[in-house]
Design a protein around this nucleic acid. Sequence first.
DNA 1: TTGTAAGCGTTATCAA
DNA 2: TTGATAACGCTTACAA
Lengths: 345, 345
Amino acid sequence: MSVTIKDVAKLSGVGIATVSRVLNNSGITSNETREKVMAAVRELNYVPNNSARVLKMGQSKTIALLVKSITNPFFQKMIHTIEQKVSLRGYHLEMRNVNYSQSEMSMAIKEVQDRNLSGVILMGGSFGYTNEDFERLGVPCVLLTVAAGEDVNTDLYSSIIIDDEAEGFKATEYLINLGHRRIGFLYSNSGNALTPNRLRYQGYQRALETHGIPFDKDMVSAINISESDYEFGFNMMRNLMMRHKDMTAVVAIADTMAIGAAKAVISSGLRIPEDISIIGFDGIEVAEFYNPSLDTICQPAEQMSLRAIDALFEMLQGGKTTHKVFEAALLKRGSCAAGPTFKKS
Amino acid sequence: MSVTIKDVAKLSGVGIATVSRVLNNSGITSNETREKVMAAVRELNYVPNNSARVLKMGQSKTIALLVKSITNPFFQKMIHTIEQKVSLRGYHLEMRNVNYSQSEMSMAIKEVQDRNLSGVILMGGSFGYTNEDFERLGVPCVLLTVAAGEDVNTDLYSSIIIDDEAEGFKATEYLINLGHRRIGFLYSNSGNALTPNRLRYQGYQRALETHGIPFDKDMVSAINISESDYEFGFNMMRNLMMRHKDMTAVVAIADTMAIGAAKAVISSGLRIPEDISIIGFDGIEVAEFYNPSLDTICQPAEQMSLRAIDALFEMLQGGKTTHKVFEAALLKRGSCAAGPTFKKS
DNA sequence: TTGTAAGCGTTATCAA
DNA sequence: TTGATAACGCTTACAA
């Protein structure tokens, strides 16, 4: 059927072991035979069979990237740089989407055995991993944008995150300092899991409290329908605006929701930022090109993914785990303006 | 090391062949042994090793999805449904990004041998495939959003496309019928390859010609810098507006570019659609939530990917190839208005 | 420097 | 209905 190492050996008149040695630069081979072998390889268009190699070596040089909700544009950037860097280091990347209803960890554990994975990167999801999870996994694991629970042994995994609670606080305080008091919050969360979204929400609450603003649960939109984030933001914002005519600003836990929310504001005839200020999260590119450009808490996606890759390969080489908290940048682009407190009216 | 079929056999007190039979529902097994085996499988947490299985069977039940520029939001939807459907049919999907500088076909040919792929879906790219390409591939191949050259044997591959030339014509004619005469075109292409973009461009030219409007090459922005599409649209639009004060409308070959272009219009103080009409291509979700919502030629992404999957599995089962041209829908959302011809002024 | 042969974990073919 | 056993294509001792 397909051309194998035997065919190459036969054509070049050497043993299969020699062919293997030439191809892997292992052992010592004379220049002469090397040439012969390479010529045969080219002529036959030989590509070594990966399954056989993996089976024999017990290691696949493949790392899996499991992404909770791969369609999130924020993850796109990260995925892209991760893919590049992984293949640069001679590894293979296997991307897999994880639904909200699936458990990325049990998926990972299965895949590791099934496909002899060398390592795993988990993106998105929640902070609910346990010691046992990592032990069962058995290969280096990097958590990107999430971490494990507080009580989990930090030698078992690496994590690259931002301080979501603090950033939620930052976004909210920014609006408060601009003079806003009635600040809505656009939020979705899967169940009661501790997620980045939930932490941002906690930051929002803390900011209100810190500044003596009463927390009004009715100003938080958290209904969890399975629409897109854009639609979700749009619908929830409409809803909030209907219920709270005095609302002058809103924090969205994602730029995608912020865009949906912005559309809701505009299509209801109000203006951004004159009537309503909006700030999002993540720093996706299209938010900058929106009309108006949307303020956001921008995660250093590039740096974070680079760091994740570094962490993974350090673990792969037997090194230590990494736990890095990046700082996100508050980008002011004009979708937030002075609120009622500072407004002359 | 890891738990193998031998361990399961030992624990359940049967031979490895029996374990294999039970797991694959092949041959005949007594209920009693089946129970025993399954119990052992559960207890040991056994997961069959994929590499061994693939090596033995010579087929991986894996299909590869090679995407030219995976970050394109339009492809996102498609990728998502493809992934779902593929795993629903018990196959594994391997996504891989292809850079503009890489050849997706030679990548595919390599991967097929390397990983015993069962089939391949190629998304994006150009119309430059040859008979020999498909013969060398050796497994069913579906082209999604592109097709092969005219002279290629249609029994060798399937293709799911829209008629890009006609759709380019449609978009342009829409603007012409609205009364526009000076219509810009935002376009990027890799080299001289025949791509969907190029076809749309040809459609644009034909529409102008059909309506007796002189083609002005200076109204086409086609500089190929490696920025994002958003930035590209923005920069090129600025450029066009500077050079052509009389331009009243623009066609962009992608919604992402249209968004960038819209931002350029707005930030220069002009209005959409009052001063400049804009229409994009593809139908990505965020274009609808843009301010204003952008008109577009919307590809039926869901249907197209479903059809691609069907085509692939039909080929996998020895069936015939499929060649389907879908019609795209012109979505009027308010970013295009009457041009000078019909304007009272 | 090279070739022979064992074995990685499966599945499939035989006998039993 | 089951259990040995021979591949699958490769890497890696070990011998030559």
